[in-house]
Simulated assay, not measured.
Amino acid sequence: MPDSRNQQVVVVTGASAGVGRAVARAFGARGAKVALLARGEKGLEAAAGEVREAGGTALPVPVDVADHAAVDAAATRAEEELGPVDVWVNNAFSSVFAPFTETGPEEFERTTDVTYLGYVNGTRAALDRMLPRDRGTIVQVGSALAYRGIPLQAAYCGAKHAIQGFTESLRCELLHDRSNVRITMVQLPAVNTPQFDWLLSRLPRRAQPVPPIYQPEPAARAVLHAADHPRRREYWLGGPTVATLVANRLFPGLLDRYLARTGYDSQQTDEPRDPHRPVNLWEPADGPEGRDFGTHGSFDDRSADRSPQLWAVRHRGLLTAAGTAAAAAGAVAVRAARR
């Protein structure tokens, strides 16, 4: 029997690099029709080529997600050329690596426009098309930083917190309306993406993800699993994400002091920052004079390509059955021992 997921129409924002590109390629491997939204045309075209090579149909659409009219127009084009959108994945972001006092008001506002309002714009465009059909799934790619702020990333953490609150509010409204449109969120750990090569940074040393680091592919698998099982309100990828969110619930004050002590060094390598590196806050780093940055960042040798915690989530039924069987065997053994 054919898998209906092969016929899906999917929109992925931030699809020119990193997690968004890995997600687009993974949907392409299913044979899906994928609209790839991002600003950088070089990265978009390369990502579209990877979707086609994987077996899918690709429609690259250059767009700034901070522009709500442009996002809506991109959604219209996706439906005209590919068909009704089944899954919309919000992933695009930009940010600044710097203390809050060294982040300009325009830079903070731009980060918020892209990283938070970009999700709002994408969600609105998706709902405008999904609600009349009473079907569809929206996946918000989040972060452990949607719950736990860390130093040197105030703009990004603020935006991720805002996405979390916005998504919870919208989920309640969809439930109230008894809508069959689903929305879910995937909270990610540190991921080896090109963001550390192109985000605006005022740190003295080169920025890095806080170890342990994961590759974009496990994140993509988590997003696809969430798209297939959207009734679960949220997914957490990786042990570090789980540990961080649990610790923040139980000991937020201790975590404040721990991050104050370790958060600066853990987000920087020993190398000095290159003052001539590209910056994508205002313009795409892979613009006319730029290059395709690909899916991975510069930390392949330190990044994991699998997550045991994700495996456990995806095979929860198997684990439950195994646990039940083990418990039953244990009960039998106890009764036998008592005879």
Rank of each mutant, 00 (worst) to 15 (best):
L188Q: 06
T137A: 07
A243D: 02
A69I: 04
G294D: 11
P288Q: 08
G104S: 14
Q267L: 14
Y258V: 13
A146D: 11
P204L: 05
R257H: 14
D197Q: 15
A22S: 14
G158A: 14
A48R: 00
T269G: 04
P272G: 08
R306K: 09
A336Y: 08
V139I: 07
R202M: 02
K33D: 03
R205I: 00
F196Q: 11
E45A: 14
S143P: 01
E168V: 11
E50P: 01
G136Y: 08
I150N: 10
D134I: 03
L199R: 07
G253I: 02
M130L: 08
T137V: 15
D274S: 11
Q215G: 11
T241E: 03
E271Y: 03
N192F: 04
Q187L: 10
S303C: 07
L145M: 15
G297E: 06
L310R: 02
G149Q: 05
D292S: 09
V139F: 06
A220S: 04
A162V: 09
A325T: 14
P105S: 08
L281G: 11
L44S: 09
P272T: 06
N180T: 05
G83Q: 05
A92E: 07
G83F: 09
L44N: 09
E53A: 15
E50M: 15
T269R: 07
I213H: 05
F108W: 11
L170G: 06
N121G: 07
N248C: 04
Q309V: 15
A329V: 09
A70T: 09
L127C: 13
T76G: 06
G165M: 10
P2E: 15
E53F: 00
R302P: 00
A329K: 00
V34G: 02
P105E: 11
G28D: 01
T269I: 06
A70K: 09
S169K: 00
H315S: 13
P212Y: 07
R178S: 14
T324D: 05
R335E: 05
Q153D: 04
S303G: 05
L259M: 15
P105G: 11
A325W: 13
F97V: 04
K42R: 15
R135Y: 02
N280E: 01
A66N: 04
L145N: 13
A69F: 04
A126G: 12
V61E: 04
G55A: 13
G294M: 07
Y119P: 01
L59R: 11
P308S: 10
G40D: 01
E234W: 06
G287T: 07
S179H: 08
A75E: 00
R39T: 05
G43Q: 04
E50V: 06
G56K: 08
V313T: 15
R202L: 12
R30T: 09
V19H: 08
T115F: 05
A75M: 12
P2T: 14
V71T: 13
Y147L: 08
I183Q: 01
A190E: 02
S94Q: 13
T115L: 09
P132N: 06
R52A: 14
R273Y: 00
A336R: 15
A29N: 05
S143V: 01
L59D: 04
V51S: 09
D286N: 12
T115P: 01
G142H: 09
G18D: 08
R261F: 13
R5Y: 12
V11Y: 06
